[in-house]
Every structure is written in C-alpha cells, then in structure tokens.
Amino acid sequence: MQAVPTPHPAASRSVGAKKSNFWKVALRNRYLYMMSLPFVIWAFVFSYYPLWGWLIAFQKWKPGKSIWEQKWVGFDQFKALFQDDLFYQVLRNTVAMSVMGLIASFTVSITFAIMMNELRGMFFKRAVQTISYLPHFVSWAVASSIITRMLSSDNGVVNDLLMWLGLIQQPVQWMGQGHLFWGIVTVSDVWKETGWNAIIYLAAMAGIAPELYEAAKVDGASRLRQIWHITLPGIRSTIIILVILSIGNLINTGFEKQFLLGNNLVRDYSQVLDLYSLQYGIQLSRYSFGTAINIFNSVVSLVLLFTANGIFKRMTKESII
C-alpha cells in the first residue's frame, strides 16, 4: 500500500493536460509502477476480491449451493439486525469499552512514555521498558485467568489486600457485578498494553532534535516546560495518526477479553458486537446474518475514520488521508 501513492501525484498532475501525457508519465515511472504492483495485487486479492462475498448478506444462504442458486431476500437480514434489542445493547457495550480503552490507553501510555523518556539511568530504563511490555506477549487466555484469580473472592490477592488494609469487611465479588466489568476490562487492557504502546511514542521522541532541548535549557525552561513545549509537540503527529486509526477501529475491538473475562452475571455489560455476531451468526449457521453484521461494522468504521480524519484535518491540519 505504501508504494501506491508515490507515483500517483505525478500521474494525477498530468491527467488534466492530455491523455497521452498519462502514458508518458507512466512510461517514465514504469519501475515505480512495477514496484508497487505486488502491493496493489495483494490489496486486491485480500481486501477487495473477498468483498463479492458480501452478496450473501442479501440472501438466505445455505451451504452446498453456489451463490447464484441461493434465495435472495433483500434487506431482511439488516432488518432483523436493527430490530433486535440485543443488538443495541451489544453496540452500547462495544462503544463504551472502546472509548474507555481509547482514552485510558492513550493517556496512560503517553504519560508512561514521557516518564521513560525523562529517565536518565540507562539500565533502569531498559529494565522498566522490558518489564512493562512483557504482558503484551501474554495471551488473553492466560491473562484473563490471572485476572479472575486475582479478583477472586476465595483467597484472591486484591480482596486479601483490601481486607488486610481494613478497607472492606467482606470479600468483594469483583467479577460478578455488571457495572464494574467495563472498568475491569479497561484496567486489564492498560496493564497489558501500556508498555507496548509506549514503544512507538518513545521512538517518536527519540527523533526529536536534541538542539531543541538545549535551546530550551538555555532559555531557562524547566523539565515540565520542556515536556510541554518540545516533547509533546514533537510527537503530536504520531499521536494524531494513532488516534485517527484507533477511532476507525472503534467497533472492531475483537472479543477475546470480553469472552474470557465475562460470565453470566455480567452478560448485560460484557457482550460485544463480535461476540454477538459469533453467537447469532456463525454458531447458528446464519452466515448471511453474520455477513450483514460485518457490513454494518465496515460501514461504521469507514464513517468513523473519515469523520475523525476530517475533524483533525480542520483542527490541526494533520491527517492520514
């Protein structure tokens, strides 16, 4: 995908003039075109070619028949989706957990990266960094097991600690209360991903010219002033790009953590869109319905992405498209 835009500006400029111009430019840039070709093919094969399968969202699809022999039902699958109360509940949960995750992960990992950046002891810095991103490599299956055990009311660490401190009298049933679930998911996510997410910011900070800091020091700027006026503006474009991309993925958050951490008591708060499409789509062999959810997902993601992009473009003159 990276290679495509490179020749494009050249081509688009010449399109306005004459048609033969395009071929001239194309000929001149033929190596660039050839280099980009594999990526175009890759994108086509894996991202665009499968899209014809979207057709089954407008059918009552059954296995064993070709797509043209299926029964066409128009928008029935979408109607069924939008008429389902549960759909709005899972949508609420998905958006709520995504937004909470988005805010928490950005603030915490940026703060963490800044703190790491300010550290001077090389050994200590490396050690902290390694330790902090290790949880990223722990799969959710294992992580959720650790979390449920820590929060258990039967000798769980958290409850034991709080009881020892005298903050609570009885063990709290952390995992059994719906209104705590979003918070638990967000905190676990922060624990697992902060170190990993900070890497990219640290890399961006490493790219800031040291002269800027020296100049600031000469002007008598304190550490905090330096962070505010040099470090943060220095990684601004990185932050914006990541925010825009994350907003685009707001409702495609996956279902691992919710699936593994959830239980029947918190069902109203733990079901997310992907789980819903798994349960009511694939598991019931309603492939058409599942595809309809997927289309809804993609459309919402596109809208979110372009909206976020547009807003940032207007506000900060930075954007990804």
Partner: peptide, 16 residues
C-alpha cells in the same frame, strides 16, 4: 453455596 459459583471459570472449578 459457594459465592463464586457463577463467576469462576471451568479451570478454577476443577482446581477447587
């Protein structure tokens, strides 16, 4: 009745 009955995962149950 175990307070954790509806919260515990299968592996926790087996461990218990």
């Amino acid at each position: 009745l175990d307070k954790e009955s509806f919260v515990q995962k299968y592996d926790q149950y087996k461990a218990k």
